[in-house]
Simulated scan of single mutants.
Amino acid sequence: MQPVLAFDVYGTLIDTLGVTIELERRLSDASKAGEFAKRWREKQLEYSFRHSLMGAYVPFAECTREALVFTDRALQTGLSDNDRDHLMAVYAELPAFPDVVPALDRLRDAGIRCVAFSNGTEEAVNQLLTRAEVKSHMDAVVSVDAIKRFKPAPAVYAYLRTRLETRPEATWLVSSNPFDVIGATHAGLRSAWIRRHSDAPFDPWGIEPDMTVPELETLADRMMR
C-alpha cells in the first residue's frame, strides 16, 4: 500500500523565520529581529494550544496577530498599527524552503500522494502555497479549520484520515514541529520529523517518530526505497 504524506505547512514547507528580514527593516533596533521572529512563532503556537484547550477557537491568523502584538509589547519595539498590518501581510507571503519542490516532485512522480495539512485556514494556506510556488506540487490542502480545533488534538488527525480516506498505518504526518509529530503518533499515524537544525531537541515524552531526517529530499530517498 502506497503511503499518503501529509505535510505540515508552517515551519516544514514554509520558512516562518523568513519574516526576519522585514523585521530588520521595521524595528528601530534591527538587532532584535531574530529574537522577535522566534518569540512571535513560539507565542503563535502557544496561543493556538490555549484557544483549542479553552474551546475558544479562532482562525490561525488571529493567533498569529495576537502573538505579534504580545511580542511587540514584550520586547518593547513600539510597532505602529501600520507596521503590524504590514508584517501580517508579509507572513502571508513567506518563502518555501529550497528542498520542498524538488522533494514533492520526486514523491509524486513515484505515485505517492502529497497533501498539505495545516492549522491555517484552507483559503490562507492555498494563497500562501500558491505565492511560494508550492501549491501546484501538492495533491490537496487539508485544514483543521473545518473542525475548529488545532494540532495536536487527536480529532484533527482523525479528520485528516477521514478526508484522505486512508488507514492509520498508511498515513504519514511530516513535520518539523515535535508537538505535531508526537500528536500524530499518539493518534496512531506514522510520522516523520524533519530536523532542519542539527541541534534541535525532540520532546522527551517517550514517543518517537518513525523516521527522522534533516530535510525533505532525504525523506524522499527513504520513502522511495
Results as ranks from 00 to 15, higher is better:
T185L: 04
K32S: 05
S31V: 02
Q76M: 07
A89R: 14
E93L: 05
V100G: 04
R163L: 07
E93P: 00
S176Q: 04
V213C: 07
R108W: 13
E35N: 05
E165W: 00
E123K: 15
R65K: 15
D139W: 11
V4Q: 12
T218N: 05
V69I: 13
G34H: 13
P152L: 02
A140G: 04
A74D: 10
V69Q: 02
A6L: 12
E24H: 04
Q76I: 00
L160R: 10
P209D: 11
M138T: 11
R131D: 10
E217V: 14
D99V: 06
A116R: 14
N177V: 03
G206Y: 10
G206D: 09
Y91S: 14
Y159V: 00
T212L: 02
T130L: 14
R163W: 03
D221R: 14
D83W: 09
T212F: 01
G183K: 10
F179E: 06
R41T: 06
L79W: 10
I112R: 08
L164W: 02
V58L: 12
L27E: 02
A30R: 14
R39F: 08
V142E: 04
A103V: 09
F179H: 14
R196Q: 08
S143V: 05
V144Y: 04
N119Y: 13
Y10A: 14
L13S: 06
R190T: 02
V141K: 12
C63V: 03
L68E: 10
Y159S: 03
P152K: 00
D139L: 08
T77V: 06
H197A: 11
S198W: 08
M224S: 03
Y10H: 12
D15P: 03
L13D: 06
S191N: 12
Y57E: 01
R167K: 12
L5T: 06
H51A: 07
A56M: 11
F202D: 02
A153F: 09
S175T: 07
G206S: 06
S31C: 00
N126Y: 06
F36E: 05
F49E: 01
S143A: 13
D203P: 06
Y91L: 12
L164K: 03
T64P: 09
A170P: 00
T166S: 15
Q76L: 04
I21T: 15
V213F: 08
S175E: 07
L17G: 13
A37P: 01
E122M: 10
A220C: 09
F60V: 02
S48W: 07
S176R: 03
A61M: 07
Y57D: 01
Y91V: 00
H197W: 09
K151E: 03
A184C: 04
I14P: 13
S48D: 06
D81T: 08
D81E: 15
F49L: 13
K38L: 10
R25C: 00
T185A: 15
P214R: 01
H137E: 03
A61W: 14
V115W: 13
A184H: 08
T130E: 15
F179L: 07
D72R: 04
L128K: 13
A124G: 09
A153W: 04
E24T: 07
L94H: 04
R41I: 02
D15M: 03
T185G: 12
D85L: 12
P59R: 11
P214W: 01
A153H: 15
Y157K: 02
